[in-house]
């Protein structure tokens, strides 16, 4: 097994934060265009999906190339996805709705893309809360089952993106194809494993 390189995790962490830093800097220097709050919401939403997809890439890579060391970074990527999701949701609650809870509730009920996005986020919360090594140890098999929620969350996130798109479906389509491939890799493993067991 490859020995852990001590600086990789912090370096990766900083790299993952770069888009957030760039957005914050853009907001501060007024470089996000004429509608900066929209840019902030849209970009943090995209980064949430990108990091969710990155998180889902780890397991197939480990299986395909035996890169066990990657497992160490999966939690980090998942938490980063959650972080971008939290900023994304906050920009909506604050800059779109100004914490008008009645209006927000109506939005969740009336607009399928909000319903999907909100569910995607809610599903990430228990995953973030149980992300510690300790929780993983204590929960055992239940932890594995619970964390499969990320599949549903990513799917809901994709629906959210598709349903809010007006006409240009190129980018959501790319994410959807990547998601489909990542899921396919898992289904194939499940079938080969069960075939091998029987």
């Amino acid at each position: 097994m490859i020995r852990p390189v001590p600086w990789v995790a912090p370096a990766l962490f900083l790299l993952c934060l770069a888009p957030a830093v760039e957005l914050a800097h853009g907001l501060y220097t007024n470089a996000l265009g004429p509608n900066p709050l929209e840019t902030l919401t849209r970009d943090t939403g995209k980064w949430t999906l990108r990091f969710l997809l990155l998180t889902l890439t780890i397991s197939p890579l480990i299986r395909l190339f035996q890169w066990q060391f990657l497992l160490r970074y999966r939690r980090l990527l998942g938490l980063i996805a959650f972080q971008y999701g939290t900023i994304h949701l906050t920009t909506y609650l604050w800059f779109d709705q100004f914490f008008d809870w009645a209006e927000i509730w109506l939005d969740i009920l009336e607009r399928p893309f909000i319903t999907a996005g909100m569910s995607a986020f809610v599903m990430l919360v228990p995953l973030a809360l149980t992300s510690s090594r300790w929780a993983q140890r204590v929960m055992g098999q239940a932890w594995k089952r619970l964390h499969r929620l990320i599949y549903v969350s990513a799917f809901a996130g994709l629906l959210h993106y598709f349903w809010l798109t007006r006409a240009d479906f190129l980018e959501p389509a790319i994410y959807a194809i990547l998601f489909a491939l990542l899921m396919l890799a898992r289904i194939r493993r499940t079938t080969t494993v069960s075939a091998g067991e029987s």
Partner: peptide, 15 residues
């Protein structure tokens, strides 16, 4: 189905 039309953001304004 996409945007609530009750309110709007005047470009250049926060609220």
């Amino acid at each position: 189905p996409r945007w609530s039309q009750r309110r709007e953001r005047r470009i250049g304004e926060f609220g």
